[in-house]
């Protein structure tokens, strides 16, 4: 008993102050939201050729789809004119799929608020997570939110065991053909009104596996999606920020 108390004392109070206080320190080399410089771009196509997943088009003006992007920085390295640069901006989640397209250097991050979500689930959101064919890193960094450092419970958000107890689904993975049926059944088991969150490049557009005949290129192929959280995997802060803005617990700027 004494040793438990002693350890408790050593380990201290660790729940972060954010969103009321400062955000936790992000790694200096983090690849967050990219900034594009269309005036520097010569439409040479080098970045698009370097991208493993076809997230960039430059013929009709340089555009980067953060929904497809793996944040691998191959494009940034490939461009000799620094037209693509990844910033520390962690706010990537968006309610509309089109809002994930980055076209310029605008500082604004995409809006994630969904009125239906705020009205119904603003103070309590129970989610059933379904893994459907990804690599399990999105799951790992979602699980982190339930640790003491992040303490997701303080926002009334919780991952629950049964779809019957849930307000919506939190999907990771591109939806493998082998998981399609289970995902459909789980979705059907969630009572209305319900919402769906697609977390990670896989769940948004297939991620590294986009175009494979074994997968469905994202959750939207099977269920309607209300919130998209880019990243491979998204940083836990990106996930938490998206959830909080989605239900209106953190105001959009």
């Amino acid at each position: 008993m004494l040793s438990i108390l002693l350890a408790r004392f050593q380990q201290k109070y660790r729940t972060m102050a954010w969103p009321a206080g400062p955000a936790p320190a992000l790694p200096a080399r983090l690849a967050g939201r990219p900034r594009l410089d269309r005036t520097a771009c010569q439409q040479c196509g080098t970045c698009a050729a370097a991208c493993p997943v076809g997230a960039i088009t430059c013929q009709e003006g340089l555009t980067l789809d953060t929904g497809r992007c793996l944040f691998c920085r191959a494009c940034e390295r490939a461009c000799s004119r620094q037209a693509i640069q990844f910033t520390q901006e962690y706010r990537l989640g968006a309610a509309a799929r089109e809002a994930l397209l980055v076209r310029d250097a605008a500082a604004a991050y995409p809006p994630a608020l969904v009125e239906k979500a705020r009205a119904y689930f603003g103070r309590s959101l129970k989610l059933r997570q379904v893994s459907a064919g990804g690599c399990n890193a999105c799951e790992a960094d979602t699980n982190v939110l339930s640790t003491v450092a992040w303490d997701l419970g303080r926002f009334g958000i919780q991952f629950v065991a049964s779809p019957r107890h849930a307000d919506g689904l939190f999907i990771t993975g591109p939806v493998s053909a082998n998981m399609r049926l289970a995902l459909e059944k789980t979705y059907a088991a969630v009572p209305d009104p319900k919402i769906v969150i697609a977390c990670g490049a896989c769940a948004i557009a297939g991620g590294p596996y986009a175009g494979h005949p074994e997968v469905h290129d994202g959750a939207s192929a099977v269920v309607p999606v209300d919130l998209f959280i880019p990243g491979c995997p998204p940083h836990p802060l990106t996930i938490l920020d998206a959830l909080l803005r989605f239900v209106g617990q953190v105001p959009e700027e």
Binding site: P52, C72, A74, C135, S176, M179, Y209, P213, E214, V215
Partner: peptide, 24 residues
């Protein structure tokens, strides 16, 4: 259930995606 065609997709490589298969 998690099958996403990794060994099949690696065949014919390496391609720019191969390293991302390895990473995931």
């Amino acid at each position: 259930y998690q099958h996403r065609g990794m060994e099949r997709a690696l065949r014919g490589g390496p391609t720019p995606r191969s390293i991302h298969y390895a990473e995931t």
